[in-house]
Design a protein around this nucleic acid. Structure first.
Lengths: 137, 137
DNA sequence: CGTATTTGGTTGCATATTGAAAGTATAATA
DNA sequence: TATTATACTTTCAATATGCAACCAAATACG
């Protein structure tokens, strides 16, 4: 029911205990260190995606259970925020917080590296396409 | 026996097929997207570590089988190179290739982000300590 | 010389995470 | 009222991780 603004307190509290060390790289990778999390952030940052099914549609084909888990964790970490679309109560809108937007330089560095060393990669993230919002309809 | 310079050809060939998409972010994460790989690179880049035991000694406590696996994959991807220490044949020296050194900007971006948003993190990667080797220009 | 130690791993096994497919719940639409 | 859209959850097999023990080659030590 009350899924938005849920009890994420003790969940994120316990996550702090899971930190492997106090190194900032290690702290960052505790959150971002997997094959999917930064792709979700890429989708919001460079492709203006905001809906669950938009992330599912990306070419890497994330599974819906993994996506659900990552969105939950990113919200717990305050990297994305989640709200119902006021115009359509079925829809949830995911947006980046400032903390999330601040990942832009790291993503850009990865894009540059990936583009430089992977000869078959596109030179833009997933053929980067700003839709100019108006995400659909 | 002849472990150095081994047959890594078809292994890395098959890895190319595993690419999830041609997006440079996705390509980068296919290699770097896990909790340990970038920590190994951090250790070489910022802590001048070069030996198997040195990586094991980092505070995040990587398991030796995982470390072994990551070093193997990083060598296959041409991010690190591996050579015997000419002065002590028991020792293997791991160093970054140009491709590996080029991950420095991405690591720095992660350090900056991790340090900014994790109040309990040190502001340097694992209390960064150059041993004076000057591995990079 | 023989033995212990250092170094860089590998092996076996329990647990955790992922991936694919199917199912569920609620809101909008016809 | 029935159908569809959307955002998930569930199930279960496959894969990855983590831990502890073990191994083998090279070297140091007596």
């Amino acid at each position: 029911m009350n899924r938005i603004g849920k009890i994420k307190h003790n969940v994120s509290m316990t996550k702090d205990q899971n930190k492997r060390s106090s190194c900032p790289v290690s702290c960052a990778l505790d959150i971002l260190g997997d094959k999917w999390t930064l792709l979700v952030i890429r989708d919001i940052l460079f492709k203006d995606k905001q809906h669950f099914r938009d992330f599912l549609a990306s070419p890497e084909k994330i599974a819906s259970n993994i996506l659900s888990d990552r969105l939950k964790k990113l919200e717990e970490c305050n990297i994305i925020s989640r709200q119902r679309d006021p115009l359509n109560a079925r829809r949830v809108i995911y947006t980046l917080t400032e903390k999330g937007k601040d990942l832009s330089p790291a993503l850009h560095a990865l894009i540059h590296w990936g583009a430089k060393y992977d000869p078959e990669s596109n030179k833009q993230p997933c053929s980067m396409q700003h839709t100019g919002r108006m995400s659909e309809t």
